[in-house]
């Protein structure tokens, strides 16, 4: 008999595809950060770092990078100078 599954180009049932796609989608959905939250993280990082070093705030960037199975926060923080009072530490 005419097999519908052949038409979709695979021997496996579509359930496997549904499950695999959902596994990736849910990982991605669960790890995404809102722009507000990213701003907050950026501010807190700045607060901590400015205690020790002078930072070029304009040049500071923070992003969430996602691949299929990993997520990473990538930041680039340009330092202008180390504060005088922290050099002794």
């Amino acid at each position: 008999m005419f097999d519908l599954r052949r038409l979709w180009g695979g021997k496996r049932g579509s359930k496997t595809q549904a499950k695999e796609r959902l596994q990736l989608i849910l990982i991605h959905d669960r790890s995404s950060l809102s722009p507000e939250l990213l701003d907050l993280i950026k501010q807190r990082i700045l607060d901590v770092l400015t205690e020790f070093v002078e930072i070029d705030e304009q040049g500071l960037a923070i992003d969430l990078e996602q691949t299929d199975d990993t997520s990473a926060l990538i930041t680039n923080i340009p330092i202008k100078a180390v504060r005088r009072n922290t050099r002794v530490l």
Binding site: R5, R12, G13, S14, K15, T16, A18, K19, Q23, L26
Partner: peptide
């Protein structure tokens, strides 16, 4: 459809 492998089964959904 679950039996034919063309629909997510209960276990799949609960796991996800």
């Amino acid at each position: 459809m679950v039996k034919r492998g063309e629909m997510l089964a209960i276990k799949d959904i609960v796991d996800l």
